[in-house]
Write a protein that binds this DNA or RNA. Structure first.
Length: 388
RNA sequence: GUGGCUGUAGCUCAGUUGGUUAGAGCAUCAGAUUGUGGUUCUGAGGGUCGUGGGUUCGAAACCCAUUAGCCACC
């Protein structure tokens, strides 16, 4: 095992397992960062540019009860830029969010957003989606950028191939991502946070839908003795059962005493299925982006609030919901706001959906601790996919 | 009152010298969305072409009348 002494001397993120389910691989744990604790399994709201769209921090804390949020290196690097972030004292201070933050490395965005990208061994050249300006991301530059942003958990720079990638492409891509990972850890060991708090670098398991590549990747990433591990490149076009199988392959190999983060996933059902298979952390744009477009997730199923059938329904948005928006506002009113294009519709739906996602993972945690996760999960999966 | 212009989907408008089942954008109604470009896709419904007559094998288009709106002049 390769060691990185500069970092092992520092205070590291703690991960304390509290309970492992007897009938599945589900676990409950507590992570401790310099910006506070995170109780897992956890869902992390996505705040790409340093803001969870439409949700005030006050509501994020009190209504959604978010414990950690995401930022995105690609977006923050382009806007407001590193100079402003450094001058502000990092993203925590800049955005007045004094709880944990995780930043994605920008690997995914370089492929999903930027144009004219050119992959080389060195890194990725791309044009900004904002003004077309040309930039280069390398494993080293992405670590440096995440140092300046200052998130508690930072991610390795990887390539995320599509779910339909051929085996040859997947293997070639994974090999380059692995070489990039070594450079990420080297740069990580040479640098430290400018703001004094600890930052943990998570490597990302890749390998598309090929079990042997996934297994090799999961073995490979462990040499860095990281404080947590991510599973990337899933929910990118492959069928859900394939995704579940890949999670099983990865989690059979990844260390049990470290958090496992399934990137970009997913639907409420995806999340429960992944928790059952031993995943601890999730992020997804679905509750916020789909919420802005009228999709509401509830414990009884899914609502498309734009549907005409809600026009004259003045019952609460979600009588079982945990946020004040759930009972203060009616379905008919929220439909009206959404159809009218009012920003309040996006705010209400985002708060509702995020509060629901956080409620869901908290319930999962409580049932893991109580020892009846499996039976609870089976009942929930039955309900969560229904269309109301 | 006279002359001119314009009436085509809920709205704004295309529509070739007359030629199959009259189109688009927006809106409406549905569906999709998985490490966020406050999006973006996909599909559906919706028109007696202002009204009435005429010419023609065939009219949204040409002719006549009529009606509504706008403009100009008395």
């Amino acid at each position: 095992m390769r060691l990185y002494p500069e970092n092992s001397n520092k205070k590291q993120m703690q991960f304390t397992l509290e309970q492992t389910d007897t009938l599945s691989h589900a676990r409950a744990a507590t992570m401790t960062t310099d910006h506070g604790q995170i109780q897992t399994p956890i869902f992390m709201p996505v705040g790409t540019v340093g803001s969870v769209k439409g949700v005030l921090h006050r509501d994020l804390e009190q209504q959604v009860r978010a414990q950690i949020i995401l930022g995105n290196t690609y977006h923050l690097y382009l806007r407001p830029g590193l100079e402003v972030l450094r001058e502000a004292g990092g993203l925590h201070r800049f955005s007045s969010w004094d709880h944990p933050i995780l930043t994605d490395s920008g690997g995914f965005q370089v492929f999903s957003l930027a144009s004219q990208r050119k992959l080389t061994e060195q890194g990725c050249h791309f044009s900004s989606h904002i003004d077309g300006s040309k930039h280069l991301f390398t494993p080293e530059s992405v670590i440096d950028t995440q140092r300046i942003i200052g998130a508690d958990i930072i991610m390795a720079f990887d390539e995320c191939p599509p779910g339909t990638a051929s085996r040859d492409y997947a293997a070639q891509s994974w090999e380059r991502t692995s070489r990039w990972l070594e450079r990420c850890f080297e740069q990580y060991s040479r640098t430290e946070s400018p703001y004094g708090h600890h930052q943990s670098l998570f490597p990302i398991v890749q390998g598309c839908t090929y079990a042997d590549l996934r297994a090799r990747s999961a073995e490979f990433v462990q040499q860095f003795g990281a404080q947590g591990y991510a599973i990337g490149g899933l929910a990118v076009g492959e069928p859900a059962p394939v995704m579940y199988e890949m999670i099983e392959v990865c989690n059979a190999i990844l260390p049990k005493d470290r958090p496992r983060y399934l990137m970009g996933v997913g639907t409420p059902i995806n999340i429960l299925e992944a928790i059952e298979r031993g995943v601890d952390m999730f992020d997804c744009v679905m509750p916020t982006r789909n919420g802005r477009n009228g999709m509401l997730f509830t414990s009884e199923g899914i609502i498309n609030i734009r549907n005409q059938k809600w026009q004259h329904d003045f019952s609460p948005i979600d009588p079982n919901g945990t946020a004040y928006v759930d009972t203060v506002y009616s379905k008919g009113y929220l439909r009206h706001l959404n159809i009218a294009g009012e920003m309040l519709a996006a705010q209400i739906a985002s708060i509702h959906n995020l509060a629901f996602y956080l409620w869901l993972v908290e319930q999962a945690r409580l049932h893991i601790l109580a020892g009846d996760f499996k039976s609870w999960k089976d009942v929930m999966v039955e309900k969560l996919g229904r269309r109301l």
